[in-house]
Nucleic acid binder design. Structure first.
Lengths: 346, 346
DNA sequence: CTGAAAGCGCTTACAG
DNA sequence: CTGAAAGCGCTTACAG
């Protein structure tokens, strides 16, 4: 004891002891329960008590301990946001975080390198008793079930899960690809190639198969389908392969904007092709760089803000009522008629 | 009671009750303390007990409750990552999150719209008793003090705080700008303009003043300094202003890559200038788009991976020992001799 | 409206 | 090595 107080006296940089609701109660001359109620929306506290507590709170600089609150209420104000490293629009995470914050929720961010790292993520978010999960990655059905059993609301973004009833908001990939294919065909393109994203990416698979199907309907068989990863370099290499192939295409449908940008750069700067005179290139996403003057992509813009808002609305509704029925919301994309492809006049 | 059990019997979708360490203890036939020790690295548990617990853990699917653990240990495994909306490299957040995760820490992400939203952020991260903070934004001294008093380790990234002793890791902005200025001058540029970022951005201020100073040393007075925000559009508008100005520059130093990209697009696509024949443009950051073939920027590449690793090392060391003395680590950038500027041969 | 008391699920001296 | 017990800082019936 003596030693301890000596230490305390000699150290000017003593750690500030956190203020608890008991400290506030003592200062205000009320019970600890009253202090707690003060911070509980809708709890009954008289105006007089309220005033005393407010004063003490300000004087002591009290902030309720969210950890203790979560322990007793068995639910935190944390929302897990799970994204893939190269997956979605980077701005997506940012917008989502800000929207959550505006609603009093905090963002626990998980960035997956491979979608298979999900095991670890699921453990973590369960350990923290998150209030909900927004996932822009594919989660194995096992994990979806686990969350549902534990009544942790889950909303997918751009992952439809046709086979399982899950909440999701997405952009209509098929419709978008149909629009792109129709535009290319209407402008007379017939030698059309497709650059796919990674084969384990559901988004890529859906876009590629929708495009291929629409082409088939139009009686067009893709001259080639090249698989790449969702990177700039992947786009460049895909373009190189296509140019070296037996039948050079006159139009390329890329599974996303990043690939389209890579294709364009390779076509122009390595192969000396003019766009769209020699070759047309279209993407998908509506990402910012795709709209830069150097690219000016023909693409499908996903309504990111709408999708984020919808996802959060759905999540909040299910945090309030975990029994709420499953819902899938699908937004149309928006055709951006840029200059990276030769299109028919309208 | 009767009502409750009736309900339970009639509802097949009953919420799975979370498993606690008491459940595991009962199942394993040991005390709850033993279970707790099992999950405490270095705690003494006999091999026999360990085996019994492991079995029960697997059978019940037990996961320790991180919230309860944080309450008692008074520290969570959460690290707050505070970034500005348009601030740093978007990949930075991603790399940081993954590095933290690899060290068993979770990321609580705060995206600030204006650096003034910091008040709210500080409250939140304190309420969650985060183990540490990595900030890529400027925090008012008041907040820095608050964290230090509460012994929450704080590391700034690219915010030097000359006046206060704080931990920071940064890229040497001045050195980088000196290199760029020297390269431009050596190649004979004399009519040099500067495109600055927002005036409340310390990063921009430091880059601009370093460049201006080095130019002054070389006897060159900038033909103009234009202020823009750190966006593509900002770059385009800045270029437009410069072209309309009295003395068109033959070289432009931009406060970051994004501005340089905007300038290049405006110069080429709106003004019909050739780069670097008609005008040289340099940036700063080493961002991915700056390296795309359409831009191929002359810029300074910040060693993002090194900086993130250093920041986490510093943070971890201070989580282990909060008294550890303050340290500033400054890394050199790397000159990228791209094709966006006419440079002297070496 | 208010206070005393139980309890959320852990960790950690403490005694054996 | 092991278990009983106290306690982290809250919320929330419960009784007044």
């Amino acid at each position: 004891m003596a030693r301890r107080s000596t230490q305390a006296a000699s150290e000017g940089t003593d750690k500030a002891k956190p203020v608890t609701s008991y400290d506030v109660a003592r200062e205000a001359g009320v019970s600890q329960s009253a202090v707690s109620r003060y911070f509980t929306p809708g709890a009954s506290v008289s105006a007089r008590t309220r005033a005393k507590i407010l004063k003490a709170v300000n004087k002591l600089g009290y902030q309720p301990n969210a950890i203790a609150r979560s322990l007793i209420t068995r639910r935190s104000s944390l929302v897990a946001v799970v994204v893939a490293n190269l997956g979605f629009n980077p701005e997506f995470t940012s917008i989502l975080g800000q929207s959550l914050s505006a609603r009093g929720l905090n963002t626990l961010l998980f960035t997956l390198d491979h979608e298979s790292d999900a095991d670890h993520v699921i453990d973590q978010l369960w350990q923290y008793r998150v209030a909900g999960v927004v996932a822009a990655v594919t989660l194995p059905p096992r994990h979806v079930d686990m969350l549902s059993q534990r009544e942790i609301p889950l909303v997918f973004v751009n992952r439809a899960y046709e086979e399982v009833p899950v909440n999701s908001v997405s952009c209509d990939q098929s419709e978008g690809e149909r629009w792109l294919v129709d535009e290319l065909c209407a402008a007379g393109h017939r030698r059309i190639a497709i650059v796919s994203g990674p084969e384990d990416s559901p988004v890529s698979r859906q876009r590629v198969s929708s495009a291929a199907e629409r082409l088939a309907n139009a009686g067009v068989k893709p001259v080639e389908i090249v698989v790449a990863d969702f990177t700039y370099q992947g786009g460049r290499e895909a373009m190189r392969k296509l140019a070296a192939g037996p039948a050079r295409p006159d139009a390329i449908i890329c599974a996303n904007d990043m690939l389209a940008i890579g294709c364009m750069d390779e076509a122009r700067h390595a192969l000396g092709l003019r766009i769209p005179e020699d070759i047309s290139i279209v993407g998908f996403d509506g990402s910012a760089p795709g709209q830069w003057a150097s690219y000016d992509l023909v693409t499908i813009r996903q309504p990111t803000n709408l999708m984020v808002d919808a996802a959060i609305d759905m999540l909040m509704a299910r945090i309030d009522d975990p029994q709420l029925i499953t819902e899938k919301r699908v937004f149309s994309g928006e055709l951006v008629r840029g200059a990276s492809a030769r299109l028919a006049d309208t």
